[in-house]
Amino acid sequence: MSAQLTGPDDLSDEERDAVESLLYRLADDEFVLAERYTEWQVRAPTLESDLAISNIAQDELGHARLWYDLLQDFGHTESELIFEREPSDFRNATLVELPFESGDWADAIVRGYFYDVAEQLSLQALEETSYPRIGNRVAKILSEEDYHREHAQNWLERLASDDEGRERVQSAVDKLFPYALTLFVGGEADEQIDQLGIRTQSLEAMREQWLDIVVPFLVSLDIDVPEELQSGDPDELLPEHVGRDGSHTDDWFDLHEDMTRSYRELGRSEAHRIMPDPDDE
């Protein structure tokens, strides 16, 4: 087992870089996905699903706050982390930044399923992290993510129960599967993240576990998965823009412009906190 890392003030530069790199990915994924989910409010196919997607968006925003709060340990302000950071500096996977197909509920459900399975694996790999400030937040997020994953899985089964719905699910899988793999793209800090025990599973191992869960489930619904998974390296499926390295789709820059517009137009210099820091509770 790796040695326990101490608080933020006692980390070496190498340790700090590793912790920050991981936290940016965790926080940015949740924040950007929450922004996208809000596009479905009052547009979902049923009242119940409308309430569900709204609650999920709120949960994801709360999870982002938990991770951004830890980044503030290193001297960053909330405004700098969200509203004043350049869009190319965000480290979210491109899966979460793509706009939803207009009116296509299958797009939202497939994306949610891909993401929620990956997040469960990511969080489980943080349960025994060597950085206690991260581990203290994992249990709360995991308990809420169980509901998100069940919601997506139940809807997939429902959608795939007839030919029309199955066709829509297939279309969403064809589009989103390569982008889902961007959740498992790493960077220069990943070797240190693993060696220091900040994460107890490598990205490659988590990707294999994700494939072992997602592929059989889709096949059970008569949904085809990419042929490359049978004969090649999953990396060959990756899209041009993966997000983790700062390469983003044009859609992300448009979304970033929209979500920061009010902050800029109102001449803000700080973000007003609407949720408490868990450390203050």
Rank of each mutant, 00 (worst) to 15 (best):
E48T: 14
E48K: 04
L51G: 04
L51E: 09
A52P: 01
I53Y: 01
I53V: 15
S54C: 09
S54V: 08
S54H: 10
N55V: 06
I56M: 12
A57P: 05
D59K: 02
E60Y: 06
E60W: 03
L61N: 12
L61R: 08
G62F: 09
G62M: 05
G62T: 01
H63N: 05
H63L: 07
H63G: 06
R65M: 14
R65T: 04
L66I: 04
D69V: 02
L70D: 00
L70K: 06
L71R: 15
L71Q: 08
F74Y: 15
G75K: 11
H76I: 01
H76G: 02
T77G: 10
T77Y: 12
E78C: 00
E78P: 00
E80W: 13
E80D: 13
L81H: 10
L81Y: 09
L81E: 08
L81I: 05
L81P: 05
L81K: 03
I82C: 03
I82Q: 08
E86L: 13
P87Y: 14
S88Y: 08
F90S: 03
F90W: 11
F90H: 12
N92C: 13
A93I: 09
A93M: 11
T94Y: 05
V96A: 08
E97D: 11
E97A: 04
E97K: 06
E97Q: 14
E101V: 09
S102G: 05
D104Q: 13
W105K: 01
W105I: 00
A106T: 09
D107C: 01
D107Q: 11
A108P: 00
I109H: 06
I109W: 04
R111T: 09
Y113F: 15
Y113E: 05
V117N: 09
L121D: 02
S122Y: 14
L123T: 06
L123Q: 12
A125C: 09
L126F: 06
Y131V: 05
Y131Q: 02
P132K: 03
P132G: 08
R133N: 12
G135V: 03
G135M: 04
G135D: 07
N136S: 14
N136P: 00
R137G: 11
R137D: 13
A139C: 03
K140S: 12
I141P: 00
L142Y: 13
E144D: 14
E144M: 07
E144S: 08
E145M: 05
E145N: 13
Y147R: 11
H148S: 06
H148V: 00
R149G: 07
R149M: 15
H151A: 12
Q153A: 13
Q153L: 14
N154H: 12
N154V: 11
W155R: 10
W155Y: 14
L156N: 03
L156K: 03
E157F: 04
L159R: 01
A160I: 03
A160Q: 01
A160L: 03
S161D: 15
D163G: 00
D163Q: 08
E164T: 10
E164P: 00
G165W: 10
G165P: 07
R166H: 14
R168A: 10
R168I: 00
A172V: 02
A172N: 01
